[in-house]
């Protein structure tokens, strides 16, 4: 098996060098939306994801960040929930020497063909959002693939379907952004933003994610 993989990878690397990298413009881009305020931070989404993907402790495709601040007793807290943002311009993709990372034309899902991954971890360093997760057991990098099998079956990913507060959802990111996508994640009168505090500049990769931001988590502009 190892020999076969080696041969496959060699062919893939050569092809990668020959063909180079052409950005993919998807027919439709799927993306996540998360309500930073109403999220109770229960992490059911994280564990649903671990189970779905059979992950050992360590790699963590979805991460709920607990943010807090203020001075007693005037304090605040909110959650920022992120997995892979399936960016419009993924920084991971061009770094991959074997071409294992690809973006689907159909819906813009970014995924890694693990049979071509050599565990070089370049993508991990390139991603501004910490999405690629190295698994020392398989010596590969893995990440959220938006439960592509569920998407193809006409359903939604495990994290979204596991959300107890219904604050995490998935859909065409353009419609999520312009408010025309019906979702429980966004409450009446709430608007979504592309960026929240302490998050990397979305101009870097154009991540397919939107947030309902906490007042203290809002950024200028």
């Amino acid at each position: 098996m190892e020999e076969e993989k080696k041969a496959r990878v060699q062919v893939a690397v050569a092809a990668r060098k020959r063909k180079g990298y052409t950005p993919v413009t998807p027919d439709m881009q799927l993306g996540f939306v998360h309500n930073n305020v109403d999220c109770i931070g229960c992490r059911a989404c994280e564990i649903a994801c671990k189970d779905k993907n059979g992950l050992p402790p360590g790699p963590r495709f979805r991460r709920v960040m607990y943010v807090e601040g203020g001075k007693f007793p005037e304090v605040f807290a909110y959650k920022v929930n992120m997995s892979c943002n399936h960016c419009a311009e993924p920084a991971c993709l061009p770094t991959c020497p074997t071409g294992a990372i690809f973006k689907r034309t159909k819906d813009g899902i970014v995924d890694i063909d693990s049979s071509l991954c050599i565990g070089c971890r370049r993508c991990e360093a390139a991603c501004p959002f910490g999405a690629p997760q190295f698994d020392p057991i398989s010596n590969t990098v893995m990440k959220c693939n938006l439960c592509v099998d569920e998407i193809d079956a006409g359903r939604k990913p495990y994290c979204v379907m596991g959300c107890m507060m219904r604050v995490l959802d998935v859909g065409p990111i353009d419609k999520i952004r312009d408010g025309s996508y019906a979702t429980k994640a966004v409450g009446p009168g709430e608007r979504v933003v592309r960026q929240v505090r302490n998050m990397a500049n979305p101009e870097l990769t154009n991540p397919s994610i939107a947030f309902v931001a906490h007042p203290k988590g809002k950024v200028e502009g």
Binding site: E4, V11, R104, D111, I112, D113, V148, D152
Partner: peptide, 16 residues
């Protein structure tokens, strides 16, 4: 049979 082909497969889900 998974790795029999040495040509890079057309990338498609499910990659795993």
């Amino acid at each position: 049979s998974l790795f029999r082909a040495v040509e890079p497969r057309e990338a498609k889900a499910f990659a795993y």
